[in-house]
Design a protein around this nucleic acid. Structure first.
Lengths: 149, 149
DNA sequence: TGAAGATACATGCAAACGCATATATCTTCG
DNA sequence: CGAAGATATATGCGTTTGCATGTATCTTCA
């Protein structure tokens, strides 16, 4: 059933993603925040400075309106801070609040252990480094590629 | 900012997945069926025999009730056939209908080109083979790993 | 055999999503 | 400067999702 190598690779990546996500979704780390909310908190935790909603949206697999409302809810719960961008009246800047940072750390520590457990159970350190490098290449390619047709 | 190699690898995979999915979601191949519906049709297209809902659910990142209803809709639209499993009165067996197979082929051909275009734009054939192998290993590991805590 | 628990799928319901579009602000160019 | 178009975010609305749970069937074991 082999197709183009690219399609085989993509299918394998999708399968790895789905299977692994299912495992993570199944463990009981998501009482404080859902996995999708955590994704946002984690993305913000890597930013030194507040970022724009549209920039955040580039990292999260959600439509712009869905992310806008997810950010609403996180702000209502006091986990993130939102303020208008002084440099652009249309934009808003988002960053973790102290409470949000605490939640991210707490949930993140637990989740990171689950990730390490699952990935190291079948892949060697060399495998992991290769996988990381290849995925980075793919992400860069997909971010760059031009639309067609 | 380097963490455990496993966590770096997982983050890279998530990023590659999100970026690439966004690109695919943006192209105009999803008028007949949504990307998620296509995922189900594609999974079924790889099966020689009808499969159980629960088995299908292992390959799709959806809750059991959500998949149950998605299958409902696809059956209502005549794209899949559903019948009780003679070997287990609780189960149902699912397979593509002729119409569903036609749609899968039509949409799949178009989508496969987009996949090939995006993945080959930044990865060599050797990269793609390696990525496939590593993702297969990861999927196998994640499917096997034991829950903890 | 038959009662107790496990498994497979379906359904009620509130929450969250995507699409289309509204609103506000910025940019461009005559 | 000011109108026309572009960009950033928010909102209305119908659809889809997940969680909790219901119903039916299977399995186990006394």
């Amino acid at each position: 059933m082999s197709q183009h190598p690219a399609n085989d690779a993509w299918e394998a990546l999708l399968s790895a993603h789905a299977t692994t996500m299912k495992r993570f979704a199944a463990d009981d780390s998501w009482t404080e925040v859902s996995l999708r909310e955590y994704d946002v908190l984690y993305t913000l935790s890597k930013c030194q400075h507040p970022i724009r909603l549209s920039e955040l949206n580039r990292h999260v697999l959600l439509s712009q309106p869905a992310l806008s409302r997810l950010v609403d809810r996180l702000a209502d719960r006091g986990l993130i801070d939102r303020c208008p961008d002084p440099a652009d009246g249309r934009g808003i800047l988002i960053c973790l609040s102290a409470a949000g940072r605490a939640v991210q750390h707490r949930v993140g520590r637990r989740h990171a252990r689950a990730v390490a457990r699952t990935l190291t159970s079948g892949l060697t350190p060399a495998d992991l480094r290769q996988l990381e490098a290849l995925c980075r290449k793919l992400a860069a390619a997909a971010a760059t590629a031009q639309a067609h047709d």
